[in-house]
Design a binder for these strands. Structure first.
Length: 109
DNA sequence: GGTGTGACCAGCT
DNA sequence: AAGCTGGCCACAC
């Protein structure tokens, strides 16, 4: 059912990310079956803001836990604020306790 | 239907 | 050690 498009699946996964948790592009891409399509995941999130649904893209970071797409939120501090608002500590545009806060889609889904 | 792109990843120089 | 290039896949024009 959710095979209609790669984008749609990315949205579903990101929306399933629990509060105060984060995931990575590579993890999502790998879960979708396209390990090398990490770039595609970021692009999907690029359209997330155009999507009718509210996609917590701020919970998605790169493999280093770095807020790579922070600039796409319309403000580098916006993403940080959102994460800290959920209890996630952000330092130097990077997730602290990244290993602990990391949420693997394959593990939950 | 080919080309370009994109918020990455990993390896090479 | 750090910077850069290529590769990867799927969508838009």
């Amino acid at each position: 059912m959710n095979n209609q498009g790669f984008f749609n699946r990315v949205y579903e996964v990101v929306k399933e990310v629990p509060y105060g948790r984060i995931t990575t592009y590579g993890a999502i891409a790998a879960y979708l079956g396209s390990k090398g399509a990490a770039r595609m995941v970021g692009w999907a999130l690029n359209g997330s803001y155009t999507s009718e649904e509210n996609i917590p893209a701020h919970r998605v970071v790169n493999r280093s836990g770095l807020l790579t797409g922070k600039r796409h939120f319309g403000g580098t501090e916006v993403m940080k604020q959102l994460l800290e608002s959920e209890g996630v500590i952000v330092e130097e545009d990077r997730i602290t306790r990244f290993d602990e806060l990391f949420w693997d889609p394959a593990e939950h889904l």
